[in-house]
Design a protein around this nucleic acid. Structure first.
Lengths: 330, 330
DNA sequence: ATGAAAGCGCTAACAG
DNA sequence: CTGTTAGCGCTTTCAT
């Protein structure tokens, strides 16, 4: 930076100022600095800048899984926003484990990130304490409720299950079931299942069967789930899969088993993944605001920093809702 | 760190040393330092450490797309390795655009990362120059060839196409086609297509039809591709889809169109995505070493740093190969 | 094995 | 609007 200053015949602090707020520098020296930067091919050292400024231009994001298409979409949206605002993305996955999340938060905090973004509301006590203690805005996404830190952006997973149940009930399905995977760890999938079950119960219909699959959701486990369901309750005429990955497996397996969808069995999923409109038959599902979550979290977090209002304002709660997409499968 | 030093009755540099090489500190004071760290709940400032050490414990990774399941798997594997070695993941996507990649490299370099990992071999001249100039090990993944920086880990995409073509030819298919998406940008998909076409040509069979779809691959575009193919060349009896996403769409659309797979049309894909074994019929495809690429790149890069052999050794080229997975669709 | 000292490259008051 | 000054919190020789 001193070299640039020399070249432009100004002081280093003017260069620094120019880099951070170009409009704060007189139009006479600005082009000189720009030229010097160009000529020397100067790349500022962000680490030094971050140390001096006591915060980095990086935001730390922790998702349960990097493989999961839902979170990929959110992360991708965040990365786009961050990139265009000159921020970087520090990413890790917790594997749905709050203790791993805690470890990650600890190391991320050592970076003095501009913000930290967590998925869901389930954190260890230590994790909460660290985050509270650190002077960093923290956002939770994909879930709403409980005691927020500074921001929550998501929607109600219970409502998703409820909407699906109501849809099936309204179409005259009465023997319902849910097939879920990883329900003990994936609390949001569990919430969707609960929302579904509750509506069924309230409706006075016979209690819904629950097929709970171990391990992460895959189409293969979905197929397996359908076989189990047919064994246990062959009379079931409507099934809610905790996500589209499972639902795809169910659809394919139904075909193999000669079960006609939706005539014999209505199938609904969650996620509206790219294959949902193309499946046989096209899948009725719920579209979550995956990208919108990423955009909203990032924009609001960055806005918080801009307005320097962090700490003053109460937590923001943003319910982005979701959309029932009715296709042929239910 | 000074507080910890005080508490432990030692100097700050001993604390620093303890943190980096615990075994280098006498067994008398080590426990005192450990206790002090515990008592004060000390978390070292990584930014300050990085500035002094002139490099961060972060690895910058650029993939073409964060949504793409292939790269998700690789990134996930890398993150796991990095995490367990105390490194962080700085991630961004280039959107298959070398110029965007260049911009990302420039800003990542400002972080003095421990290493940078790029996808593919297609980089702008400026990008190459910056990377060469920076004293950072750089790895390229998912593709092999050309002039490497320090490491390449991948496999031959041409060979993938060739293997599929040979498989179809061996099974007596003679009117072949390829359906590809985003071929102008996704150079690896293009290479797979070329590998396929070349074998068909060499075999003396009639030249294969190419259906080139605009935009990123989706099951919907795959379905569309099949319709186009039937219009243009109804006699085609074997089609290679540039990836499983497209292939899924083709399979579903075939069902709707009443085309019997594989009897009337053999279908093969690339990727062995989770739904491949469950599709109707199960999809013949090629399994790329997605996770292995992530593991290998990360481990070797970290090993390079450990042994301090960076710069001395010639570039490492690692061909991880791939696996043809024959199922029912072809 | 431990400690003293000199920065790493930049930011942010502050004065002019 | 520009320049001067004093660090940010740690690492790393180099003596001891």
């Amino acid at each position: 930076m001193e070299d640039v200053a020399h070249h432009a015949q100004v002081s280093a602090s003017s260069v620094s100022l120019y880099l951070r707020r170009p409009e704060a520098v007189s139009p006479r020296i600005a082009p000189r600095i720009a030229a010097a930067i160009e000529a020397l091919n100067y790349v500022p050292n962000l680490v030094a800048g971050s140390l001096a400024a006591a915060h980095t231009r990086a935001v730390a994001v922790i998702v349960p899984s990097l493989i999961n298409a839902f979170f990929s979409a959110t992360v991708s949206a965040m990365q786009g926003e961050l990139e265009s605002s000159g921020y970087q993305l520090l990413l890790a996955d917790s594997g749905y484990d709050p203790r791993k999340e805690e470890r990650l938060v600890r190391t991320f905090l050592a970076w003095s990130p501009a913000a930290v973004v967590l998925t869901g509301l389930r954190h260890t006590a230590t994790c909460r304490r660290m985050l509270k203690g650190a002077e960093v805005p923290v956002a939770e996404m994909w879930e709403l409720g409980g005691k927020p830190f500074d921001m929550q952006v998501g929607f109600s997973h219970q409502a998703v299950g409820a909407v699906i149940a109501e849809h099936m009930l309204a179409r005259g399905r009465s023997r319902l079931a849910v097939i879920g995977a990883y329900l003990d760890q994936d609390v949001r999938a569990e919430q969707r299942a609960q929302g579904f079950l509750e509506v069924v119960r309230r409706h006075g219909a016979q209690d819904a069967t629950v097929i709970s699959l171990p391990g992460l959701a895959t189409p293969t486990s979905g197929a397996h789930g359908l076989r189990r369901l047919r064994e246990q309750c062959p009379e079931v005429d409507g099934v809610f899969c905790s996500n589209d990955v499972l639902a795809l497996g169910v659809l394919c397996e139904a075909q193999r088993l000669g079960i006609s969808i939706p005539d014999q069995l209505a199938v609904a999923g969650f996620g509206d993944l790219p294959y949902a409109p193309v499946c046989v038959p096209p899948l009725t599902t719920v579209r979550p605001p995956s990208e919108a979550i990423g955009l909203t979290v990032t924009q609001r977090l960055l806005a918080l920093k801009e307005t320097r209002s962090y700490g003053c304002a109460p937590a923001e709660m943003v319910d982005l809702g979701f959309e029932l997409v009715v296709r042929d499968s239910a």
